[in-house]
């Protein structure tokens, strides 16, 4: 499978980078990998829109709309508090406010405030997965408002801050720089 020959090899840093480079060369150069019968049906991005719910840390994928913590509070009380407790203090499911320092131990409970590196993840996960019993029923405005509410509960943004596709990616999470990539040679 792996043919590391000539100049190509010397440009490769490690085994996986080498494979990667060769794969890309094979790809771009038109050299065939396993040839399929070509039975995929062309589909437009418009047709995929309802499934395309990925929000990236740079904010791409965020929909139009906006919300504030004040708008989020009543939605949270109605749709989330039953599992996450009043004001997100915790109930049958995780607390969404507070959190001990991560130096408290390797089994410290991870929270939005002490762990999550990106605020965009909070929007993405709330939109795709919550409320747990009725996922993907919230409007974009509701998701922005709930995201703002959870960030404000944790003192990460101000109560009056408006969250939208421009402001949310700029929110700096407290633990943004708290990570070490485990396998840098395999991580583009």
């Amino acid at each position: 499978m792996r043919r590391c020959d000539g100049a190509r090899v010397r440009r490769c840093e490690g085994a996986s980078a080498c494979l990667f480079a060769l794969a890309m060369l094979a790809f771009g150069g038109g050299a065939a990998r396993a040839q399929g019968p070509g039975l995929g049906t062309p589909v437009s991005e418009a047709e995929i829109a309802a499934w395309d719910i990925s929000v990236m840390p740079d904010g791409s994928g965020l929909p139009p709309g906006s919300g504030t913590a004040a708008q989020g509070a009543p939605i949270f009380a109605a749709k989330c508090a039953v599992c996450h407790g009043a004001s997100g203090k915790g109930g049958p499911n995780a607390a969404l406010v507070g959190g001990a320092p991560l130096t408290s131990g390797i089994d410290t409970t991870k929270t939005i405030a002490n762990f999550w590196p990106y605020a965009t993840t909070l929007f993405d996960f709330t939109r795709r997965a919550m409320p747990w019993t009725q996922p993907r029923t919230l409007t974009s405005d509701e998701v922005y408002a709930l995201t703002a509410y959870m960030l404000a509960l944790n003192g990460i943004i101000d109560d009056r801050d408006v969250m939208n596709a421009e402001t949310l990616p700029d929110v700096r999470m407290p633990n943004r720089d708290g990570f070490v990539v485990r396998f840098p040679e395999k991580t583009p």
Binding site: S54, V55, M56, P57, P101, L102, T103, G105, I106, D107, T108, K110, F115, W116, P117, Y118, T120, T121, D124, F125, A129, G178, F179, V180, V181, R182
Partner: peptide, 20 residues
């Protein structure tokens, strides 16, 4: 994407408070 499961759930905490 820094999805919930990669950025939060499957990221183990190290003794110095950083996480993999």
């Amino acid at each position: 994407a820094m999805s919930y499961y990669e950025s939060r759930t499957y990221a183990p905490i190290l003794p110095n408070g950083k996480a993999y």
